[in-house]
């Protein structure tokens, strides 16, 4: 390789290393802001903002969804498998909302520690399969559940 070309190559490698390093620091610094939502553990630990809008994400606890009145109010519990938070929402739920499904909600905590949601988004997981396969995956569990 000619010296001038080697020089340019070194310059480019240095430039990329510099940019990579700068980006790493910037992203580390903004790490908290880049999180789209808080987990339920964050809320229980008091890391989530008080009296302010924030997003809460988690899995809808199986069997926790209830509609106390005849209106649109829905109450359910969210979990990250270590802590649970109760959520109240009044409105139309997205197609993928179901028990055992991950969701992200936007709202604020009230004085009773209940998260009052203004918006509910369903978080899709990365699994794709035909219904028959999903059924056959559930089968062994179903037979265990009913001895």
């Amino acid at each position: 390789m000619k010296p001038i070309r080697r020089q340019r190559l070194i310059l480019i490698v240095l430039m990329l290393a510099g940019i990579g390093l700068a980006a790493t620091f910037a992203l580390k610094a903004f790490n908290e802001n880049l999180m789209y939502f808080f987990s339920t553990t964050d809320v229980k630990d008091g890391k989530a903002p008080k009296d302010a809008l924030f997003r809460l994400g988690g899995m809808v606890v199986k069997g926790s969804v209830e509609r106390p009145d005849a209106d649109l109010l829905v109450r359910f519990r969210l979990t990250d498998f270590s802590q649970e938070v109760t959520v109240e929402y009044s409105g139309i739920l997205p197609d993928l909302f179901r028990e055992g499904q991950g969701i992200v909600t936007k709202g604020r905590l009230n004085e009773r520690g209940v998260f009052v949601a203004e918006e509910v988004l369903a978080k899709h997981d990365e699994n794709y399969m035909p219904p028959e396969v999903a059924d056959s995956l559930k089968q062994p569990q179903a037979t265990q559940d009913q001895p």
Binding site: N31, M35, Y36, F37, S39, L121, D125, N127
Partner: peptide, 9 residues
């Protein structure tokens, strides 16, 4: 990060 977009399939 926590994202609404699902992970890699």
């Amino acid at each position: 990060w926590n994202t609404l977009h699902q992970g890699a399939t």
